[in-house]
Design a protein around this nucleic acid. Structure first.
Length: 617
DNA sequence: AACTTCACG
DNA sequence: ACGTACGTGAAGTTT
């Protein structure tokens, strides 16, 4: 048995590393005592972060409480693996930091379904997010184990992390390659592995007490653990990639990017991605650039370049001027480059052995509680089907996308109790259009599609906290018209302004933390408290999606689910049942929220995701 | 690491 | 006192 001693918060702790069957027996005896006393913290060390990648391996599984850690050398195989598996099955209550990762690792490498682990798990990262969801850049502690431990357990907790990075470097590894390359028995590695479970074991009771003190509902904590499980199930399922198509698409886009880059080079732009070069070249061609970035540099983003290329927001010729050929080449070259690299190539490089991508589905990512998904799967271009075409339903299946209808406007109406909005949503049928309704309320029979567009902008302005200038820029309407529209909007829906003021006051009285309708803590930035309207709506909309996911599971539809996308659930379902499954999804996403109907509409596509975006396949 | 840009809801 | 568009992930360039 290898043993290390270390100090945490003034206590001497021990990291045990069993090597022989007798050592493992001792571990087993400890586990029996520990699991009777209380929860056992669990963690894994792996060769990297690509759980579904072809060379991924599980190296160690750690167990621990506040004073003892046991690092099981899973990589050694044989009885090490047997004891680790057995121990995972025997623990009643498990504590994990960022459980979704370890659930999936253990599921993939040790064959224990995450459905067995999840009901027994408390995730310290979830507790931390419910305490303060802000990343360090926004003034929070963040949710990484070391900074959290430094705050709540022992200020010197991050030292081992830095120590391990230094060891990686001294051995000629980087932060990425070190995890797979370092010797399994390296003392710093084993100590680091052991300390993580001890820190987790100490973190959970402190955070629990803190949440209790702040009145965060236990129900919310439990709900978040359920949502984490559902997201992990979707991550495990992954999405099928049309490999041949993706490869061909990547090649085509690379060629296209190359062609436009060569064109831009003729005007002195060596790198399309260099705003400074683009700005200088455009000015050299006599173009007047007026917009500036936050740091004072000349802005040459899409919004600036499109008019120079005589293109509207949909890339259609306006006919107002002679297109600037450089602006046109930069726009097209950058788009082709981004689509090729961020999407098509990424799909290929991220493939699992089974030909699928498994993007990380983070259940609790944004400071509003919103989910996030990696590998670009939340950001695939929707204006064109070519990228989404590369993602496929299962063999014999079709893609089904079920969207909430105007969810944030409905949540706003519900939370702020906006009388006329609620009346509209209640009277409106399936195809009710809140923005057209608003336009009719204000303009009467004179309401036109142009008015609808303006009041849609005003509605988003309310939800986002935008002003006249930004809404005018977004909608393309004159500022005077927008100013009038906002006045009319406030007159029709006076409850919104009142609620905004009330929510800001509540937050101020609560240490600049607004408590959402479900009890979620939403810290406000002092200099932009108006954001509370957006935080309230966005976070409850996220919780509406979470509830829908729970309903979907109860209806037996979870195996069809592939991705949550803020106001949408993407699914793959057998072609012959598609109609029935689609209706079921709609049912799971339909209910009443404080007197406002929440409604959803399913669309049945073909084999590829792209088929839902105006293409015929 | 910071900045800029661009893709989404 | 007044007014403020919100939230992400990712790539490329510059510092």
């Amino acid at each position: 048995m290898i043993e290390y001693r270390h100090e945490i918060a003034g206590d001497t702790i021990t990291v045990h590393v069993p090597e022989t069957p007798e050592d493992l027996q001792e571990f087993s005896a400890w586990l029996d005592r520990a699991r009777r006393r209380g929860p056992v913290a669990v963690d894994t060390e792996t060769t990297g972060l690509e759980i579904f990648g072809p060379s991924f391996r599980l190296r160690t599984v750690q167990f621990g409480d506040a004073r003892d850690a046991w690092v099981i050398l899973y990589e050694r195989g044989g009885y090490h693996q047997a004891y680790a598996r057995d121990a995972l099955r025997r623990c009643r209550e498990i504590l994990i930091h960022n459980a979704a990762y370890d659930w999936l690792v253990i599921n993939r490498c040790a064959g224990i379904p995450l459905e067995e682990l999840a009901p027994r798990t408390t995730d310290s990262r979830i507790l931390a997010m419910l305490h303060d969801p802000r990343p360090p850049q926004d003034g929070g502690i963040g949710t990484a184990l070391k900074p959290l431990s430094a705050r709540w357990v022992d200020p010197s907790a991050p030292d081992t992390q830095n120590g391990l990075t230094a060891v990686f470097n001294s051995l000629g590894y980087t932060k990425e390659t070190g995890w797979a390359g370092i010797d399994l028995l390296h003392p710093t590695y084993l100590l680091y592995a052991g300390l993580d479970v001890i820190l987790t074991a100490r973190l959970v009771p402190v955070l629990r007490a803190e949440l209790h003190r702040l009145g965060v509902p236990v129900r919310l904590v439990e709900y978040e653990h359920e949502i984490a499980r559902l997201c992990a199930v979707m991550q495990r399922a992954g999405l099928l990639v049309d490999q041949e198509y993706a490869q061909q698409l990547a090649r085509r886009l690379a060629e296209e990017a190359e062609r436009y880059a060569a064109l831009a080079a003729r005007y002195g732009v060596v790198s399309l991605g260099s705003p400074a070069q683009v700005a200088e070249a455009l000015q050299g061609m006599g173009e007047a650039l007026t917009e500036r970035t936050q740091t004072g540099a000349l802005k040459v983003d899409k919004a600036v370049l499109l008019p120079l290329a005589d293109l509207d927001r949909d890339w259609q010729r306006i006919g107002a001027r002679e297109p600037n050929p450089l602006a046109d080449a930069v726009l097209r070259g950058k788009r082709a480059g981004k689509w090729g690299v961020s999407y098509a190539e990424r799909f290929i490089s991220k493939l699992s052995a089974e030909g699928r991508i498994h993007p990380t589905v983070s259940a609790l990512a944004a400071r509003t509680g919103r989910m996030s998904v990696t590998d670009g799967l939340h950001q695939l271009p929707s204006s064109d089907h070519v990228i989404r075409r590369a993602i496929l339903a299962e063999p014999g299946h079709v893609m089904i996308s079920t969207d909430f209808q105007a969810i944030e406007m409905r949540v706003l109406a519900a939370l702020a109790d906006v009388r006329k909005m609620k009346a509209g949503f209640l009277s409106g049928g399936d195809s009710f259009d809140i923005h057209a309704y608003t336009a009719r309320l204000i303009k009467g029979d004179a309401a036109t599609p142009k008015h609808r567009k303006i009041f849609k902008g005003a509605g988003f302005g309310k939800v986002y906290g935008g002003g006249v200038t930004t809404i005018a820029r977004q909608t393309g309407a004159p500022e005077e018209e927008i100013a009038q529209a906002l006045i009319a909007y406030d007159r029709q829906f006076p409850e919104i302004k009142r609620a905004a003021r009330r929510w800001q006051r509540e937050a101020f009285q609560n240490g600049m933390v607004y408590i959402s309708a479900v009890g979620r803590r939403l810290p406000l930035d002092r200099d932009r408290t108006y954001a509370v309207v957006n935080y309230a709506c966005q976070s409850v909309a996220r919780d509406v999606l979470g509830q829908a996911m729970l309903n979907v599971e109860s209806a037996g539809l979870l195996p069809y689910c592939r991705l949550p996308i803020h106001d949408e659930l993407l699914a793959s379902a057998p072609r012959e049942n598609a109609e029935e499954v689609a209706r079921e999804f709609e049912k799971c996403m339909t209910w009443d929220l404080y007197g406002v109907p929440i409604t959803a509409e399913a669309e049945i596509g073909g084999r590829s995701w792209g088929s839902l975006y105006g293409a015929d396949f």
